[in-house]
Design a protein around this nucleic acid. Structure first.
Lengths: 221, 221
DNA sequence: TCCGTTTTGTTCTCCCGTTCACAAACTCCT
DNA sequence: AGGAGTTTGTGAACGGGAGAACAAAACGGA
């Protein structure tokens, strides 16, 4: 899934843990907004929907931020996780492909509130250029290079049809983007050192259908 | 992630394999449309973006559908996988929450082409009722029970704000839905026997940010 | 100060998933 | 018919993650 070229730093956190840290972060934010100052691993694990032993092990990769007999300081732990993930800094993002999904992504508040700032919406279709989406003007895809250079964009989101996705990814990589979130169907091939994460909506439904089918079979047996 | 109550059937396919079957299915469809009649595990693995040994082991859980020295018949294998997943049959689906994301989901062609038929779009906001989205009229959320009963819906999609998600899930479970695809933030609690899969867009970006941050640290070292 | 209580951090064990490697099986060519 | 070449299916080794269990550490009360 992820390709790494540079030398690993001192602490390397397991992938499974990295994927759960954002979940803990959200749970901590909820707790903080509810006025909770301190919480136990048991309570936080319940809020995040995981096993408490797993939670403690995950947090131990970051350091010892808890107090035995007491628990974790909600705001302190929240800051530590945010810093570790990198969401304390500002991440400029470009979204390519402003169809239905691109619209939804541009309007998604969960990005901005976590340090991701959409600096540009790009689309190859000239009839869409100039259209305002979520307060941002849709620009030509050919402006990609200048926008990436100007804002120092490292993360790109692909929400185009499947046929265009590889070409978009190639252009992104060529102008220096090193992390891609891909919503288009199919496999992207990118050089080593570029991370790609794929979200496929239909795959999720198909997994549910598989289990649903098995439930039905079990009933008539 | 998934809870199972009924007795397992004869063959139980590993979860990791189940999650990849839809990917193979898509790759096979692409090959078939390109006129390819037969393919090797190596070729299919490349198209699906996985290791060929892993692909062969995955397929071996379904049965022996290949021919040694030759490979797999594309259309035959495609049918077998589709049957195993359950996408040869028709799956009625309801989508609750017709905001930006709900719009995108309703218009997403990848659902319909895989046997998922959106039978209703529901929203609690009365000002949206009657609006036509993707050729379907938005109806009141309170119609959930009658719609589920009428169409025999087993799969529900939640695309509401986070605060409403648990209440929607509870109503879905109460009227017989046993599989839920959840796009809302936060943890859903459901009784055993109900499967929930969660898609969190901001989690994916945060994982990318973590790796991006580490790349940057590696460079200056 | 000392003891009981609570909760973290960590060790250990088990299980699932990935990958290698190879025998079995099939095709094609001579 | 037989051998060379190809490709599947699977046994076995390996690595990583999940969960149980416990020692270490902090707090509170007497």
């Amino acid at each position: 899934m992820t390709a790494r070229t540079s030398t690993e730093s001192a602490r390397d956190i397991p992938e499974a843990t990295v994927a759960r840290l954002p979940v803990y972060l959200r749970a901590l934010t909820t707790l903080s907004e509810a006025g909770t100052g301190t919480c136990s691993s048991e309570a936080l694990a319940a809020a995040a929907g995981v096993n408490s032993a797993k939670l403690r092990k995950d947090l131990s990769y970051l350091g010892s931020y808890g107090t035995r007999g007491v628990g974790y300081d909600v705001d302190y732990l929240r800051y530590q996780i945010a810093r570790e993930i990198g969401v304390t800094q500002d991440w400029p993002v470009v979204i390519v492909g402003i169809g239905n999904l691109g619209h939804a992504l541009a309007n998604y508040s969960g990005f901005r509130s976590r340090g991701f700032r959409t600096v540009a919406l790009l689309d190859a279709d000239p009839t869409r250029h100039g259209e305002m989406v979520a307060g941002i003007e849709v620009q030509p895809f050919d402006d990609l290079e200048s926008i990436v250079a100007e804002h120092g964009v490292a993360i790109g989101v692909i929400a185009t049809p499947a046929v265009a996705a590889q070409a978009v990814a190639d252009r992104m990589v060529a102008c220096g983007i090193t992390s891609i979130l891909n919503f288009a169907a199919g496999v992207l091939s990118v050089p080593a050192g570029v991370d790609v994460r794929k979200v496929d909506l239909s795959v999720e439904l198909q997994v549910l259908a598989y289990h649903e089918q098995r439930k039905a079979q079990g009933e008539l047996a």
